[in-house]
């Protein structure tokens, strides 16, 4: 059977697992093309207005796959880590797609719920393997191999690589345009690793001569540790991931500047970015900018902001860190 995997949301993190799992079970995997104008427009038209950009784009990818795949794989990632969630929209994703995409796409829904324990989460894979007609022993075998592929992938991400290099073969090594420093690029995987949505920010920054570090490069233990300053457990896995990796970059001085990409209307970012900015303002004072993306974002405006940020980083070095930020005099406290 042909199983379509939309190149949207967390595909860039879990593709090795999903693809190996279906291949091991003897199914063909069809990927939707990288996000393009048509996919975006289809998604925006189908989806409710209030949803965020990544969810709209997901709708577009599903529409694209509708006549090319027998089943479209929709992961309902309720929780990927015990006692944590991702985002309410991820939990309601299959319902959103069923009700918004005309023509009744045939969905293969994976319920992944590790809220109780990680082991519980993988029961979802067993269930869809059975649904596809395989015996349980075969499904377990496939799952074990798929998890091995995923572990290798995760290890390479932690080793300093990123999905753009591993999945799309993009050359992002430092020094395309000289070696001026390091920028921490923080954002959800579906923004950072989608070249259409992120307006190719990664390539642009690399060309300007900066090495990039991503949240996927930061060790989970570091993230746990930096997030423990908050009195209450952060119950969004990706929220914690972004905030924790940002704090780790600040604390360890890994980056000369931090750019946060956020999608308009992202409920989790609204809180995480706020906490990160406040912490930075209090203790670290490293240049940090937030760029909000939505379906109306234009390339020119985006480039201007990137360039302005990079200019500011460079001038700051040049002027010996004496820089008057907006609204604050140098000699007036």
């Amino acid at each position: 059977m042909k199983i379509g995997i939309p190149r949207a949301l967390l595909w860039s993190i879990y593709l090795p697992l999903w693809k190996a799992f279906f291949n091991e079970l003897g199914h063909e995997v069809v990927l939707s093309p990288p996000t393009n104008k048509k996919i975006l427009n289809d998604g925006v038209t189908a989806c409710v207005d209030d949803a965020c950009l990544p969810v709209k784009i997901m709708h577009g990818h599903v529409i694209d796959l509708m006549d090319r795949a027998d089943l479209i794989f929709i992961p309902r990632l309720i929780s990927i880590c015990p006692r944590e969630y991702i985002c309410p929209k991820f939990i309601g994703l299959p319902e959103m797609i069923r009700n918004s995409v005309a023509g009744g796409p045939k969905l293969l829904v994976l319920d992944f719920n590790a809220h109780k324990s990680i082991r519980h989460g993988y029961d979802g894979f067993i269930a869809i393997g059975r649904q596809l007609g395989a015996r349980e022993s075969a499904v377990r075998r496939a799952l074990a191999r798929a998890m091995k592929a995923q572990d290798e992938y995760t290890a390479r991400l932690l080793g300093g690589s990123n999905p753009l290099m591993l999945l799309e073969g993009m050359a992002l090594h430092a020094g395309i345009g000289g070696n001026k420093g390091t920028i921490g690029l923080i954002g959800h995987p579906y923004l950072l690793y989608d070249r259409f949505v992120s307006m190719d920010a990664c390539r642009k920054l690399a060309q300007m001569g900066y090495r990039l570090i991503f949240p996927e490069n930061i060790l989970p233990e570091q993230i746990e540790r930096t997030c423990s300053i908050y009195p209450k457990k952060l119950f969004w896995s990706y929220g914690k991931h972004l905030l924790g990796s940002g704090l780790a970059m600040l604390e360890k001085g890994m980056a000369d500047g931090i750019i946060v990409l956020s999608s308009f209307g992202c409920g989790i970012d609204s809180f995480m970015v706020e906490l990160l900015q406040r912490q930075n303002q209090r203790d670290f004072r490293i240049p940090l900018t937030v760029i909000t993306l939505d379906e109306h974002s234009g390339n020119a405006g985006f480039d201007t902001r990137l360039e302005a940020f990079v200019d500011m980083l460079e001038w700051r070095d040049h002027n010996g860190h004496y820089f008057s930020p907006h609204g604050e005099g140098l000699y007036i406290c």
Partner: peptide, 11 residues
């Protein structure tokens, strides 16, 4: 921007 209600809105 209410995340859960957006899902309800589409249903």
């Amino acid at each position: 921007g209410c995340m859960p209600e957006i899902v309800a809105e589409s249903i």
